[in-house]
Amino acid sequence: MNEKIRIAGVFKSFKSRRNEESVAVEDINLTVQTNEFVTLVGRSGCGKTTLLNMMAGLLRPTDGSILIDDQPVDGPGPDRGMVFQHSALFPWLTTAGNIEFGPKNQGVPKAKRREIAQELIELVRLKGFENKYPRELSGGMQQRVAIARALATDPEILLMDEPFGALDELTRSEMQSELLRIWQARTKTVIFVTHSISEAIFLSDRVIILSPHPGRIRKEVVIDLPRPRQLASQEFLQYYEEIQSAIF
């Protein structure tokens, strides 16, 4: 496997209005392999979203470097698809319109982007909902559209910021299985942010545990279990305890 993302000595601090500096993340070092599924877990304030936004290029590190394929990140780009917690779908576009947004602005011709959208709509199982607006869709369906939209530019990396955090428990576990299916169908490098330990174990190859104030990497746990994983299995629970004790 090749190295896809290298985060070296990254610091990020924010200035408040009164010019007080607060450190969001401190001395983060992390490498992610191509097609690896890595999850960042930790309590609120541990900087996991900040770290994700820096990989997306929406924020710049105060110090240190983030390399993707050995190139420093310079702003957001369609090579890194992003899925937000509250889908952030464009309410004025239909399902198909949202999915075609990326390709359209890259200058992909109409027929070709129709084809891309059709394929993705089938992948995320939303056939028949092509012409619905986001507000006509349920929360789970909206996140399916958001995933399809992020995949439409065919990025090699998928950045996901608590994408299932606002969903109910049943929809959430359904979406987790769906994500694994999509990930296996499209082979992407995934960085996934979550609050949920079981979600992290269920999904990832590797779990990175961050501690808050300032955000630091506290521990890394490689999940060495075949998929699909059984939530109630002995090994699952052992991982759960290991991660939980690292968080608290």
């Binding site: 929406l58 957001p76 779908l89």
Partner: peptide, 19 residues
């Protein structure tokens, strides 16, 4: 977040304004 989403999808400043 609408603007950020558009940026991560590779839209330019002009495209973001109009779309």
């Amino acid at each position: 977040q609408y603007i950020q989403a558009a940026e991560t999808l590779g839209a330019s400043k002009t495209q973001i304004f109009f779309q």
